[in-house]
Computed example of a mutant assay.
Amino acid sequence: MGLPEDVEGPLPSLFYSQLLVEVLGSQVLSSLPELDRAHRSLSDLIYNGHRVRFYEDYSPDVVKSRAEFKAVMTELYKRGY
């Protein structure tokens, strides 16, 4: 959130991959756990003068599916999986 409309131009995938490298750094992007921590801890990411924020965005179906497996995922996480 925080970017102007249509800032991505005709190649949104290319734009957003470059944006992530620029605001988070390539080292952070090489590790998913670090990426997750980075988007939670960095509150003032700036891109071309715009404050950028990242949020998890799941569809209602995905939220429902994740909720169904929450207990199992918690147990697996506790066991180190």
Rank of each mutant, 00 (worst) to 15 (best):
P60G: 05
R66H: 08
V63S: 10
R79V: 01
F54R: 14
Y77N: 02
S26P: 08
P10E: 14
M1N: 07
Y55S: 12
Y47M: 04
K64T: 09
S13T: 06
V62I: 15
D36P: 05
A71H: 04
Y77K: 08
M1C: 05
E5Q: 14
K78T: 05
E34C: 11
S17L: 07
Q27P: 03
R40K: 14
P33G: 12
L76N: 06
V28P: 08
V62Y: 00
L35K: 00
V52Q: 01
S59P: 01
Y58M: 08
F54K: 09
L32C: 01
A38D: 13
D36N: 10
S26H: 04
F15L: 01
I46V: 15
E5I: 13
E5L: 11
V21N: 10
S41T: 13
N48G: 04
A38R: 10
V21I: 13
R40W: 03
L19D: 01
R37F: 02
S59L: 09
G2W: 04
G2I: 09
V23K: 03
S65K: 15
L29N: 00
V7F: 06
P33W: 02
D6T: 07
A67V: 04
A71L: 00
Y81V: 07
M1I: 08
G2L: 13
L45K: 08
E34D: 15
Q18S: 05
P33M: 05
D57Q: 05
S31W: 00
R79F: 02
F69T: 12
R66S: 08
V72Y: 10
P12G: 04
S65T: 14
R51I: 00
Y58I: 06
E22C: 10
G80T: 09
H39G: 00
S59A: 14
E56M: 12
V28W: 04
Y58L: 11
M1H: 08
K70V: 01
L42N: 15
R53K: 15
R79Q: 08
V23I: 15
E68T: 05
P10Y: 02
P60D: 05
S30G: 14
V63K: 13
L24M: 08
S31K: 03
D61Y: 06
L24K: 02
S43E: 09
E56G: 03
Y77C: 00
L19S: 07
D61H: 05
T74S: 14
F54T: 12
S31Y: 01
V72F: 10
E34Q: 14
P4A: 12
M73H: 09
D36S: 11
S59T: 15
G49T: 06
